[in-house]
Design a protein around this nucleic acid. Structure first.
Lengths: 222, 222
DNA sequence: CCCAGAATGTACTAATTGGTTAATTTGTGC
DNA sequence: GCACAAATTAACCAATTAGTACATTCTGGG
């Protein structure tokens, strides 16, 4: 205990400035994200977060008000991060089919690789989105995806490879649903049907099915 | 308070036998299902369940051991119930396409109408299926669905309307994913994309898309 | 150089929570 | 009608939990 505290103090003094609001905030947020994603809002323990932080419980309340404020901050950061990564996806120069394939594949890979984020979304849904509702920043972050999909659909329709009447939000819902399920319902589904859902091969196989499913849905039949 | 307790006692004496193990179990299980589905495992309160029951907290521990035992019992009952309803679905006499359409539609409708069940599944996934693992009864309940799908696929392939290599478990996963999402992720998705997902029209629209998506995936192209 | 206000550490608390102890009532086989 | 187990009640408890009071330290601007 004593040794640990000394090491902590040491680390802080070397890596971080003695008083470093931004650093402290970031530190708390990182640990809190892990704790909330792992245990849900009610299962998460403020004391446990504080203990793993380089600072004290007091700071947590100082910066985020209460447990709920901290959870909202965690959600906001998580959503902001995924949006930022999504924005890096460049689909210019790809024909509609290739663009859609790329986007679905990207979504699948991203969600597969970011279970904690998926878990936060699930948890927030269990709470009926009440924290998301109280957040001012998250609301309009997600429209770029829709616009991107709308563009792909329009282009596809114009050159005659996609059929009419594909709504980009519906399409996004389908993509999300198929990618999400593989991570979100892993535990029960793989247990119930004795099917591996985490190995590289299983993921690759499923990825192909998801892409194929959606492409067949939008493709115009001749 | 006094009046309420007298009414409670009165009700029990009239409707239920003074000592009625089965009735007490059922009573507890019903309330517990609501409480767990609403608040998750960690958010659920044993005292709250007990208070809404026609019996006392002690009975809850008497019959189910502890909070976890009660949750497992809730899960088991929920899964058993859905399986029983699923078994009532009669697909004989339907051609493969119609059978698949019927099954998907049924799954969609059932899940849409049983949010508490969906929430229990989500909650169990957040807990990585640890309770399901400790249940002895749930494990092999879910195979009939797979067998039913396998039969549909086989028949469809034989008469040349479905293509080869459709795995029934993959297919079930796709069906589940698309139906599940609409209930499970309602809160965040509808909030983020300002889209109604609960009205009769919205459900009907989405139901059609889900069915169409899956049918296009299995159908053989000419 | 000093001091106001921001940042942080320590120690505490009031309320809640899952679970239990021990005694009492009720039904049943003999 | 009685003995004995099953069913039920009421009061209780130890541990945990989110949140706080208060003192202290740091830092930048005048």
């Amino acid at each position: 205990m004593d040794i640990w505290r000394r090491r902590k103090a040491h680390r802080r003094r070397v890596v971080v400035r003695p008083q470093d609001p931004e650093g402290t905030r970031r530190d708390i947020l990182k640990i809190a994200t892990e704790e909330f994603a792992e245990n849900g809002f009610n299962g998460a323990r403020v004391d446990r977060i504080a203990a793993r932080t380089h600072t004290s419980k007091r700071m947590l309340y100082y910066y985020f008000g209460d447990k709920e404020g901290l959870f909202i901050a965690v959600l906001e950061q998580a959503y902001a991060r995924i949006r930022k990564i999504e924005a890096e996806l460049d689909l210019t120069g790809l024909d509609p089919k290739a663009a859609l394939r790329t986007m679905i594949g990207f979504t699948f890979d991203f969600q597969s690789a970011n279970e904690p984020f998926i878990r936060l979304v699930i948890i927030e849904n269990i709470h009926r989105g009440e924290h998301l509702a109280r957040s001012t920043t998250i609301q309009q972050l997600n429209w770029p995806v829709i616009e991107s999909l709308r563009d792909i659909c329009d282009r596809g329709r114009r050159i005659g490879v996609f059929r009419d009447g594909i709504d980009p939000i519906d399409l996004h819902m389908t993509i999300s649903a198929l990618c999400f399920f593989n991570v979100a319902n892993r535990a029960t589904f793989s247990r119930l049907f004795k099917r591996d859902m985490t190995s590289a091969e299983a993921l690759a196989r499923r990825r192909d099915i998801v892409i194929e499913t959606i492409l067949r849905y939008v493709t115009k039949r001749r």
